[in-house]
Design a protein around this nucleic acid. Structure first.
Lengths: 325, 325
DNA sequence: CTATGATGATTAAACGATTAATCAAGAATA
DNA sequence: TATTCTTGATTAATCGTTTAATCATCATAG
């Protein structure tokens, strides 16, 4: 608990504080011997520069804020993890704040972060809100169709990939399942699926919040593939099918989104579409970092493509015939 | 981006900086009128005290560190969320660091946090490590059997609750499923189950990492209930059963641990055991807070009980008879 | 009328690091 | 020899806030 500061090192070595600072930061003019001496002593004493002292003088805290709607939702920790590792590479720490999905919560979260002196903020905005952040550099991670977005995953292309993959496996009769028809993300994913299927295959859309399809009936009608907008929804489809006797993936192929941990626990293991979260995080941190440094030549908006992870739940169609009884 | 500090307020009001500080913090001697004047002007200018300036002078940053093994694992975000809200109540922000499950990662994470000037650290240690944190107040969140633990969830009692609940529903032939036989947490949960079942019912233990039971065979042998040490494992049991035609919960009741989001998505919805994470977080933050303030009269270790959430996957036994063919 | 107190505000010194300005001394140049 | 350059180090100011010490003023007590 005892403090080791530059003053102490300077005193012990009989030199000035400024020289210590210069030696440690590599600025100014210091002889090689003194640098050697200072760094050695600093090492010995386990000296760490005071974050507060440095922040006060330089006006930079070395901390980024991350505002997410709900840390409990399994989509976000993955991104948070990516941001954390990317930030560390740039010498930043991250302060996480939960906006609880509300616009008021988002506002207080942002204020809190600013008050704590963060150098910049990465925001995943709550449903179509307009975070006011004139006071500090900001990177907004949203959807490609959101004009405020600085970084986004290409949900529509993800939807296309989902549909195209199953189409290529021979499926021609689809069930598209969303959860909340008001969600922009889910709509973009569904739109992407429609891009591929319109005119090329039969399909129906259900929103689980309103009505969940009767899988036995649908199987009788010839449906062989189900494209869900999330892994949680896909899980519901798989287990619902299991209890109803619709065999998966033999009778029904299923694919989700987000690559949640449950995807490898469920049987059959779940195929899924997801963005490269590391890349997403890299761009968000990179954008923010150059905004902080005021590098002007930075793209104001970028979109990262989604990829696919094929597991057991998606299969080549066996015979495009009716099943059930 | 323009700075509002005490100096500016002082200048505008024609008074000294010290008076501004005293007026805003309520210390020293300031007349009621001046306090009124200062706070009003501060409000207008949207003044926020500089975190760096204050931290430098007071030696306290108002930030707590939270070290978790893997933010991606769905168990932790729930706790992190609790810590974040509890910390906020005490006026702290939290800096999250991921130790990546390794002891080296844990060490660097802790060093990083100290370097950033946190006032204290909450650590969920990686598997039986001994975090060295002599430099800063620390709260360790581990298991009741870990002597270093300051706060813990009662995993053994959770295991008891799991077994007792199914026993009370009439089950007498159990499958206990763990994942990793080296995990202290999982062993404590299994031990709790054994506390109840030993001598009172038939049971078998499987470790999924080594061998997953043949559910059809087990059902034939009369097993009617499966106690898993985690929701992910329970999910695997439910879906594996589903594809093998072992009906759940009619033929097999299943219960897990941790109350993951997937529990309400899977069909049948999953019964689960979990600690009150809010309470867990409250105690961790409370313990740390008083350690920081050096309140000596604080219990050095406390244990929080686990509760149960009953959903569809656990049922009263219908008939304790063989099924299958 | 002077000594004492209470009140309200100011001065000035920290906290720890950074950095522009300065200075001393030896080397190179005229 | 006098002058300029270079090198290596020091001084001192600064960031924004807190806080002990000081001071002025006016009221009260002696």
């Amino acid at each position: 608990m005892i403090l080791v500061n530059q003053k102490q090192i300077a005193r012990e070595l009989g030199i000035s504080i400024a020289t210590v600072s210069n030696a440690l930061t590599g600025k100014g003019r210091v002889s090689a011997d003194v640098i050697q001496l200072v760094t050695a002593r600093a090492e010995e004493l386990e000296y760490f520069p005071s974050a507060a002292g440095r922040a006060l003088k330089t006006g930079r805290s070395g901390i980024l804020g991350l505002v997410i709607p709900d840390i409990t939702h399994p989509v976000f920790p993955d991104f948070a993890h990516g941001v954390e590792t990317e930030a560390e590479k740039c010498g930043y720490g991250i302060l996480i704040a939960d906006s609880r999905g509300t616009e008021a919560g988002q506002k207080t979260a942002i204020d809190q972060l600013i008050q704590r002196g963060v150098d910049g903020i990465i925001i995943i905005p709550t449903r179509s809100s307009n975070p006011n952040t004139s006071k500090v550099p900001t990177a907004i991670v949203s959807t490609p169709t959101d004009p405020k977005s600085n970084v986004a995953a290409n949900h529509r292309q993800g939807g296309q990939l989902s549909a195209q993959t199953l189409f290529d496996l021979g499926h021609r009769n689809f069930l598209l399942i969303g959860e909340d028809p008001m969600s922009p993300v889910q709509n973009e994913r569904i739109d992407g699926m429609k891009d591929i299927l319109d005119g090329a295959a039969k399909f129906e859309i259900y929103w689980a919040n309103e009505e969940f399809p009767d899988l036995v009936l649908k199987a009788k009608e010839g449906v062989t593939a189900c494209l869900a907008v999330s892994d949680l929804l896909a899980l519901r489809v798989i287990t619902e099918a299991g209890r109803l006797g619709v065999r998966c993936p033999d009778a029904l192929s299923v694919i989700g989104f987000d690559n949640l941990p449950l995807g490898t626990a469920v049987r059959p293991t779940l195929s899924t579409i997801m963005p490269d979260t590391t890349e997403l995080a890299r761009r968000a941190v990179g954008y923010l970092n150059s905004a902080i440094r005021q590098d002007s030549d930075q793209p104001s908006s970028s979109v990262v493509e989604m990829g696919i992870i094929l597991r057991e739940s998606t299969q080549k169609i066996t015979q495009p015939t009716q099943q059930g009884d």
